[in-house]
Design a protein around this nucleic acid. Sequence first.
DNA 1: GATAAATACATGTTACTACATTAAATGTAC
DNA 2: GTACATTTAATGTAGTAACATGTATTTATC
Lengths: 158, 158
Amino acid sequence: MSIETDIKQKKFRSAFQRLAINLTYTSNWLGYKQLELFKEHDITSQQYNVLRILRGQQSNPIKVSDIADRMLDKNSNTSRLIDKLLVKGFAKRTSCPSDRRAVDVVITETGLELLSRIDPILEEWENGLSASITEEEAELVSSLLDKMRESDSNNKNQ
Amino acid sequence: MSIETDIKQKKFRSAFQRLAINLTYTSNWLGYKQLELFKEHDITSQQYNVLRILRGQQSNPIKVSDIADRMLDKNSNTSRLIDKLLVKGFAKRTSCPSDRRAVDVVITETGLELLSRIDPILEEWENGLSASITEEEAELVSSLLDKMRESDSNNKNQ
DNA sequence: GATAAATACATGTTACTACATTAAATGTAC
DNA sequence: GTACATTTAATGTAGTAACATGTATTTATC
């Protein structure tokens, strides 16, 4: 259904406004979908996000601030997210030897197991998208979103 | 910058996974931008969202649940969002005469004034996007997001 | 080498969200 | 018309987020 119908707004002041609103709406939609998927595994989207980043590191530890960067999150929240993962046994936290301010985080075996249980479910859902958009279209949207975020650097001196 | 570089993940299991992750990332990016814009007007993105919907109604009142629908939000949160707008004098709440369970919400003059102050700022930011993507591309992304959300109905019986 | 500034993380506080529950009004079956 | 389910909104509670601040460590400047 078009965003016009979904939010019952007929006119937008520009294609860019429509895009901004649609982006937020679609992200909410996606967020609720994911919430539903993750709920039964006693984990949140944010926590999954951290675990995915940790897995990407293989056994290489990663700092809290680097995780926060990749999530566009505040350090303080990431700190507490990792607390939760620690309590559940999905991550380990050790002091970084080269910089004692920093904290090295790695995923545990239990964490990897959790991901391997969640992955097929997520994958199935993602592939369900192919019923509505093609792979080429998905790639197209993704690359246009990349382009859109580039306005960041353009706007900095305004 | 590409999402691969932003989140430093080189491989995705599919174009659809990349899209899902990129969508969340870009929406967070947009969210922080808006937060910044709204902050000095003592209002949140969510509250602005409600006001925008109320303005779209002109003087026609709208029910709390209808607002929630258009925001993909929970009724309970919308209820409290409106509380905030009420306190600030941006919205009015009256009992619906035809259905006394419902609550009619309308925007006030003060609310309209606030929007008219915020609009040009938002508009300027939105138009700043044109430095990175064209109007045609914005429309394209928007329509593809619409298409993407259609998998909702497809997935319902799975 | 001492001092100032910056960095990395943690935490207290306040506000917001999800979820479950409550309360009132309406709809439906009999 | 009464009994039961549904709808609509509000609220209590627990968890999460944003923001400011605190503490420890490192880097830069003199």
